[in-house]
């Protein structure tokens, strides 16, 4: 996991710290605070957990314990290309788990995590509403139905190639202009 915050995130964290003042120092405020932090930073970095624990004067471990219990909190920044693998009933039956495993293996991360370059993150979701296409994976905003393990590499490759093409176009533009 990449622990470094980006400059924007550091800004957001400062913003968070200033907003904490409006929350009373009560244990009951922990979840609302965590929700506020996640809204600002889109995830809960270790630095933010520390800030929250200092504000509420409870141990970091306790904040972490509460945060890990709830599905809505994430501990890794969302990747540039979020991958959502459906594990709803239909996709599960049609081997969604195998698709998830393939993405995990190809990218070397587990679900809920983000690649160190923050390009990809994997999540599992429960039903995206197109069970006829099971198993389904969503990359960026595009739905890929009838997924197969053999398709995983191709999809990732395509994103890489698109990225390279953009890069090349940009360099070309720069050199022309």
């Amino acid at each position: 996991m990449n622990d470094e915050l980006t400059p924007e995130e550091k800004e957001a964290l400062k913003d968070v710290a200033s907003k904490l003042g409006s929350f009373e120092k009560q244990r009951g405020n922990l979840i609302p605070i965590l929700q506020m932090v996640q809204e600002k930073l889109s995830y809960l970095p270790t630095q933010a957990i520390k800030v929250v624990s200092e504000h509420l004067e409870i141990f970091e471990s306790e904040v972490y314990g509460v945060a890990t219990f709830y599905n809505q909190f994430r501990f890794h920044p969302p990747g540039k290309h979020p991958i959502k693998v459906c594990l709803g009933t239909a996709c599960h039956v049609r081997g969604g788990g195998i698709i998830l495993e393939n993405f995990e293996r190809k990218l070397g991360i587990h679900y809920g995590q983000t690649t160190p370059d923050r390009e990809f993150s994997i999540e599992k979701v429960a039903c995206v509403g197109c069970c006829a296409l099971a198993p389904v994976a969503i990359i960026d905003e595009t739905v890929h139905g009838h997924m197969a393990p053999s398709k995983v590499e191709g999809l990732l490759m395509r994103i890489e190639i698109e990225k390279e093409m953009e890069e090349r176009a940009r360099i070309k533009d720069e050199s022309c202009g």
Partner: peptide, 10 residues
């Protein structure tokens, strides 16, 4: 006073 250990995950 406070616990350094905690349950985490689910």
């Amino acid at each position: 006073g406070q616990s350094a250990l905690t349950f985490s995950k689910r």
